[in-house]
Computed example of a mutant assay.
Amino acid sequence: MVKLDRNSRFVVFFLIAQMAFFPACTSAPKYEGSAEQYDDIVLTTKVHEAIIDELSLRPFEINVRTVKGVVELSGTVNSRDDIDKAMAVARSINGIRFIKNDMRTQGTGDY
């Protein structure tokens, strides 16, 4: 058996105490968070597929990101009409809480 000096015994005691008490402070993952994340993935996929299905929007790389039901569209398109079309396509998807437009038109930087 290894003989520990006073400082080593304190360190061992402290580490054992941390292992005993700190796991109680962590929270278990909630199913709501997982379900919410899954719902965001589904919404992102639906919006992205709907944009790809719209022939006039296919030439553009429109990015779709969803957090807690809020869909953000970003990328560069040719005109304000393209932005409006992408927004309309996104609005047609059920379950979206809000749509944030971060798309720009080429050359002007307009939103």
Rank of each mutant, 00 (worst) to 15 (best):
Arg80Met: 15
Asn63Tyr: 05
Thr105Met: 04
Lys68Cys: 07
Val12Cys: 09
Thr105Asp: 05
Asp39Ser: 13
Glu49Asn: 11
Ile51Leu: 05
Val11Pro: 01
Ile93Phe: 00
Val42Pro: 01
Phe14Arg: 09
Leu43Tyr: 05
Ala17Leu: 15
Gln106Ser: 12
Glu36Gln: 12
Ala86Met: 08
Gly33Ile: 11
Val12Glu: 05
Glu54Pro: 00
Val11Gln: 09
Asp81His: 11
Ser34Tyr: 15
Phe22Pro: 00
Ala17Asp: 13
Asn101Phe: 03
Asp81Ser: 13
Ala86Leu: 00
Ser27Asn: 15
Asn94Cys: 06
Thr66Gly: 07
Leu43Phe: 01
Ser34Thr: 14
Phe60Leu: 00
Arg58Thr: 06
Leu55Gln: 09
Pro23Lys: 04
Ala20Thr: 13
Ala50Gln: 07
Ser74Glu: 02
Thr76Asn: 09
Ala50Glu: 01
Arg91Cys: 08
Asn78Thr: 12
Lys3Gly: 05
Arg9Asn: 06
Gly69Asn: 04
Gly95Thr: 02
Val47Cys: 02
Lys85Leu: 12
Ala28Trp: 03
Asp84Ser: 06
Ile62Cys: 05
Val42Leu: 07
Thr105Glu: 01
Asp102Ala: 11
Val47Asn: 00
Tyr31Asp: 14
Val70Phe: 06
Thr26Lys: 12
Pro23Ala: 06
Ser27His: 15
Lys3Tyr: 08
Met1Phe: 10
Ile99Gln: 04
Pro23Phe: 12
Asp110Pro: 04
Pro29Met: 10
Val64Leu: 05
Val67Tyr: 08
Val89Cys: 04
Ser8His: 01
Val64Lys: 01
Asn101Asp: 03
Asn7Trp: 09
Ser92Tyr: 02
Ile83Met: 02
Arg80Pro: 07
Glu32Lys: 12
Ser34Met: 15
Thr76Lys: 08
Gly69Cys: 03
Val67Asn: 10
Glu61Ala: 06
Arg6His: 11
Gly107Ala: 08
Asp110Glu: 14
Arg80Asp: 12
Ala86Gln: 02
Pro23Thr: 06
Cys25Asp: 07
Val70Tyr: 01
Glu36Asn: 12
Asp81Tyr: 09
Leu57Val: 02
Tyr111Asn: 12
Leu43Pro: 00
Tyr31Gly: 12
Phe14Asn: 07
Ala24Leu: 13
Phe22Gly: 08
Arg9Lys: 10
Asp81Asn: 13
Asp5Leu: 06
Glu36Ile: 03
Gly95His: 01
Glu49His: 13
Pro59Ala: 01
Glu49Cys: 03
Ser56Asn: 11
Glu54Met: 07
Ile52Val: 09
Phe22Cys: 05
Ala24Trp: 14
Ala20Glu: 07
Val12Met: 09
Thr76Arg: 04
Lys85Gly: 03
Tyr31Arg: 15
Arg9Leu: 03
His48Ile: 07
Pro23Arg: 00
Leu55Lys: 08
Lys100Ser: 08
Tyr111Ile: 14
Asp81Ile: 09
Met19Thr: 10
Lys100Ile: 05
Arg6Asn: 10
Lys85Phe: 04
Phe21Thr: 15
Ala24Cys: 10
Lys68Thr: 11
Asp53Tyr: 05
Arg91Glu: 14
Thr105Asn: 02
Ser27Lys: 15
Gln37Gly: 13
Ile99Glu: 06
Leu57Ile: 02
Ala86Val: 06
Met103Val: 06
Gly69Gln: 03
Ile41Cys: 11
Ser92Glu: 08
Lys100Phe: 06
Asn78Cys: 11
Lys3Trp: 08
